[in-house]
Design a protein around this nucleic acid. Structure first.
Lengths: 259, 259
DNA sequence: GCTTGACCCTGACGCTGCGTCAACCCTCCA
DNA sequence: TGGAGGGTTGACGCAGCGTCAGGGTCAAGC
């Protein structure tokens, strides 16, 4: 006959846990000896080990009792269910592992490798750290919204970086936002380039965001984020509106002379 | 500017969770609008996503704040720690998966048929019910501890029952423990046989318990269980110690003249 | 016989990370 | 004008125990 602490030690649980299982009726209360101590038979060890195996697999204690009472086929079905659940959980932890690994390497927070490649390319082109950081934050938001689509978009995004106009745009923006003065002329220049690029994209029908276009929130959010990072973005938005475009992260034609 | 439900929807958490993060100071309270509603900036989205990545990795909320405030190297160390933890957790789930698979197969951790065969053979030989019951309880514990190994061990266990010495031993033990008197001479005889058998096994190098030998607890428990079932076992243990052996369920050479 | 230390007992509260009321206040639209 | 669909602050509930508090018991040593 075992005492509660022997039982606990043998099965690798705490005494408190055993008492808890008694309380919720999962493990039957054993006989007491003359002084009121619980005395366990070897069978209790077996019961407890079975309980722990299921509990370790993530089965709620409230279900374990029913499972152990169930007939073989019901039990087998439940086990299959648990196994699936364990598989999912393992997969979840593995993706989580990748995510935090990215988190560790600074800006690679939750970003697909394609995106980090893109950010690295921006640096190569000479884009300032502040602007790159802004891009990073934007892509974090994009990744949160469309985790899959983002990877599809990147190749063309990267390809666009070969366009001298775009490179020039980014360099101007880097200069502007790196300085503390408000060099309005540069902003105007940037707005002109941006509008020109938008026109080209618009004409070539390059805007095929699909369902994405339905959801304004992320893009509004991106613009707001940019404004927060640097209020001069507000001026840029104004300049774009003068040129017939709304937004920044995603440019939309304003109703105007050229409907 | 976002409302709380927009923020929540965007980051895939519940509104309640966001408010909880405010309560514990993990996410700073944003400005309120004229009607007292919380209004979030885009930066909050990024913060919240980072919080969720860490939380999903199993980091307690109470630590996440410190982590995000920490400098790069401290953060990197913490991430490494988390990664180890995740790896452990994945390994744990994988073993758990194997365990429940075993639980489903076989007779669910009760006694394997090999063991019941063994117990029946004991009865055939003339072993008393009390001793058989003791053996049964022991094997329940063994099965709980090493569900697989037990089935491997049984064939040789059953084969050993052909040994006349062992049969004689079991019969003596049956007699002794069935009677209420303490027939010490019989116990001495039993000890002699047991020591002789142990010597043989020891010399033939039959003791290959492998990793099992590392784990004393089960064997101590088996001995304790036997002593509880009948205090005369204590005397038997003493006699064995005189003969240079420790234990009963598993005999071990004591340090002595014949080291 | 007395102390000491290691157990055992039964409450009962604490902890995490929210879910889920309740009871009330805004705002917008028909 | 009223109803739907937001928002607000409490406050309690849940699992699965950990951790006291405030007792009693048992074996060992002095």
């Amino acid at each position: 006959m075992l005492t509660i602490s022997q039982l606990a030690a043998y099965t690798g649980v705490t005494v408190r846990a055993v008492r808890h299982y008694h309380q919720i009726g999962l493990l039957p209360e054993p006989e007491r000896d003359s002084s009121g101590y619980r005395r366990y038979s070897a069978g209790a060890v077996v019961s407890l080990i079975r309980i722990r195996i299921l509990a370790n697999a993530g089965v709620p204690l409230s279900q374990i009792g029913q499972m152990l009472d169930a007939d073989a086929s019901t039990f087998a079905a439940a086990v299959e269910e648990i196994d699936r659940h364990l598989g999912d959980e393992i997969a979840r932890l593995e993706t989580s592992r990748k995510q935090i690994a990215q988190l560790a390497s600074g800006d690679r927070l939750a970003l697909a490798p394609e995106v980090t490649t893109y950010l690295d390319r921006l640096r190569d082109i000479g884009v300032s750290e502040r602007v790159v950081a802004g891009e990073r934050d934007s892509w974090i938001l994009m990744s949160a919204r469309w985790p899959d689509r983002v990877r599809e978009w990147m190749p063309s995004k990267i390809a666009q970086l070969d366009d001298p106009q775009l490179i020039r745009l980014y360099r101007i923006l880097s200069e502007v936002f790196e300085s503390d003065t408000s060099d309005d002329a540069r902003l105007v220049e940037a707005a002109d380039i941006l509008a020109s690029l938008a026109d080209q994209a618009y004409r070539s029908g390059e805007i095929d965001l699909g369902e994405v276009a339905q959801d304004d929130l992320p893009f509004d959010l991106l613009d707001a984020l940019a404004v927060e990072a640097d209020p001069r973005v507000k001026r840029l938005l104004g300049l774009m509106r003068e040129r017939g475009w709304d937004g920044l992260a995603r440019l939309e034609r304003l109703a105007g002379p050229s409907t």
